[in-house]
Simulated scan of single mutants.
Amino acid sequence: MKKLKSNMESVSKIYFIDNPYPNGHKIEEFSWSGRIDEYGFIWFDFHLKTENYYANDDENSEDDDEELSDWDSKIVWGNYHACTLSSNYWGEQRGIRINKLDEKLDFDAVVKKDLFSNDLPSDQHFDDDDLAFNIYLLGHDSCAGHQIRFSKTENHQYDIIWTGKIALTYSGDDEFSHEFKAEIFNAEFEGFHYPKTWSLEKAAEMFKAKLANFEDYEFVDLNPKSNKREYKLDKLKH
């Protein structure tokens, strides 16, 4: 996972609305990639990890009010150290599907629109396996209702606004009553992966059938110093 580069004017952060840290938490790792699955569906994957919640906290600023909820208590946040929010970190294939099987995917058209996960559970049904992302927040909690907005900047980079809802399911609460907002600066799309069982020829055939403007992509060796050939499909930088 990539370490984020930042400057004084644009530090990537995630804010957990109304938690004890109104200034947010710096995002230390962020990645945005794509993949095609065995059925020809194409997905976006996102992964982020924060610094420790208390990284910029004053030594004597912890609360001692036992009546505070988990969400409001700095002591509770401190017990869980940092957040990981990801569609692929724990080995599961989640993420947000971005194509229709009967249409070629136009990457540039996709990132001009807001992306939605459409996975917020109803009152009658809640299955964690249906969610697009996993989250470790105050334990292994749940998140849904994601909205992701891209703003293209320079050098093939994007600023991203990512919002969603959180349920503290680790502590037994399945209500998505909390919210987050992540602001990510200068992110790069890292290319499309494909099943390891596919040959390079099959991958090329599948991508050509599913991606618009296939000529704007190239296969990149993931491990050029290794004897094992493994590739991803990336956009040409021009």
Rank of each mutant, 00 (worst) to 15 (best):
K165I: 00
G40M: 09
G91K: 03
I148E: 04
E188G: 01
E201K: 14
T163K: 13
I96P: 06
G191A: 01
H193M: 05
S177P: 08
R149S: 13
A132Q: 06
F189H: 05
G164D: 07
N99K: 04
L236K: 15
A187P: 08
E179T: 06
D70K: 10
F207I: 06
F46E: 02
H47I: 01
E201P: 00
D37W: 00
K165S: 11
N19V: 09
N23K: 11
L115V: 07
E59T: 15
I98H: 06
I75S: 07
N99G: 08
L4G: 00
N23S: 13
N227A: 06
L4C: 07
F16S: 04
I135M: 04
T163F: 03
K181L: 10
E215P: 08
V110Y: 02
A204T: 11
D102C: 09
L85E: 04
E28Q: 13
L222D: 14
L68K: 15
A203H: 05
Y194E: 04
K13S: 09
C83L: 12
A209S: 15
E188P: 00
K235A: 07
K5S: 10
R149Q: 11
M1Q: 09
W32T: 00
E188R: 00
V11D: 01
N155I: 02
G91E: 06
I14W: 01
T153L: 02
K13D: 05
T50E: 01
I135N: 04
N56G: 15
F126A: 06
S122C: 03
F185N: 02
H193T: 12
R94V: 02
E215Q: 15
K208M: 08
F46K: 00
W43P: 05
T84P: 02
E190I: 03
N99Q: 07
D174K: 12
T169C: 05
A203P: 05
F133I: 03
L120A: 05
D114M: 09
K237C: 09
E51H: 08
S151L: 12
H238G: 04
H156R: 14
G40T: 06
Y194C: 08
F207D: 11
F44T: 11
G164V: 08
G145S: 07
Q124M: 10
E92H: 04
L233R: 03
Q124F: 10
K202T: 12
R97G: 11
R94N: 00
D123Q: 13
H47S: 13
N88M: 02
H25W: 03
F185D: 00
Q124Y: 12
K3E: 13
R35W: 03
F189P: 07
L48C: 10
H47N: 15
H146T: 09
F126L: 11
F126N: 09
E190V: 01
D108T: 13
I161G: 03
Y231D: 00
H140Y: 11
E230T: 13
K235S: 07
L131C: 08
I98V: 15
W90L: 10
E59P: 04
T197S: 15
E205R: 11
K165V: 04
N60Y: 12
A212P: 06
I98A: 11
W90Y: 15
N118R: 09
A109F: 14
S69I: 05
L101R: 12
